[in-house]
């Protein structure tokens, strides 16, 4: 399994609520190879979002190990984890989460502020990222001057500008109409195929899941695979 980007080994996650302990997974195992595009589906409350947070270093498992590119991440300190996220993961949120007062270009530049790149190089990369998502003409627009689909494309540009290996998306098309959703999904497919980004996407929409290389169903703490 030298080809694995992510390895989830016996991962457990439980939440304590007062006296009760709510166990979401007990022993979850999954391997995601480099260049994979996985769609995770499953009933509400099955833990899809919880898993995505753990993959992205936004949450920690209660047990087990998560290995990213051969390095264990679940036991990193807060600040190491923060730098790890900045270098390795791009997040795409359902509601875009752009900074309302910043232009598209400034939003896209944010992850680069955490690097050592000079301003010329940063501008070049922002320009490239906006070209990839087809929004270079809108670089000086503020989020509220953009449509939902355009805002999601800015968010995608922001997710990929620092060139992370992994993109994580939770319901990236949940807030968009069918046509716009298709554009976004095609774009994710392109990022996977042409740029080799590994993508993990959570979705409720079977049509959206079809764009992935494979679909995983999470239910009762276990995965069931359906190859598309």
């Amino acid at each position: 399994m030298t080809n694995a980007l992510i390895q989830i080994a016996d991962v457990a996650k439980s939440y304590r609520r007062g006296q009760e302990t709510l166990s979401i997974f007990d022993r979850l195992n999954l391997t995601i190879p480099h260049g994979d595009f996985v769609a995770i589906m499953g009933p509400s409350g099955s833990g899809k979002t919880t898993l995505l947070n753990m993959l992205g270093g936004l949450d920690r498992p209660s047990g087990g190990a998560i290995t990213f590119d051969g390095k264990q991440i679940e036991n990193l300190s807060e600040s190491k984890l923060s730098s790890w996220r900045a270098a390795n993961v791009g997040f795409i949120f359902q509601f875009y989460n752009l900074m309302p007062t910043l232009t598209a270009a400034k939003n896209v530049e944010l992850p680069l502020l955490l690097t050592r790149l000079g301003s010329g190089e940063r501008n070049r990369r922002v320009q490239t990222a906006l070209e990839i998502v087809g929004l270079s003409e809108r670089k000086d627009h503020k989020p509220k001057e953009l449509s939902g689909g355009q805002q999601q494309r800015v968010a995608i540009a922001r997710a990929l500008v620092a060139d992370p290996k992994l993109l994580l998306a939770d319901e990236p098309t949940g807030d968009l109409d069918r046509t716009t959703a298709t554009e976004i999904l095609e774009m994710l497919q392109l990022l996977n195929k042409d740029l080799g980004k590994t993508i993990v996407m959570v979705t409720h929409d079977p049509a959206a899941a079809k764009y992935a290389k494979r679909e995983l169903h999470l239910d009762k703490g276990e995965f069931e695979e359906r190859v598309s």
């Binding site: 936004l58 923060s82 996220r85 997040f91 989460n97 900074m99 309302p100 502020l113 955490l114 922001r158």
Partner: peptide, 13 residues
């Protein structure tokens, strides 16, 4: 809060 939390997710301190 949402903006600051998003920045934290991206890797800001």
């Amino acid at each position: 809060t949402k903006e600051l939390a998003t920045l934290r997710a991206i890797g800001f301190g």
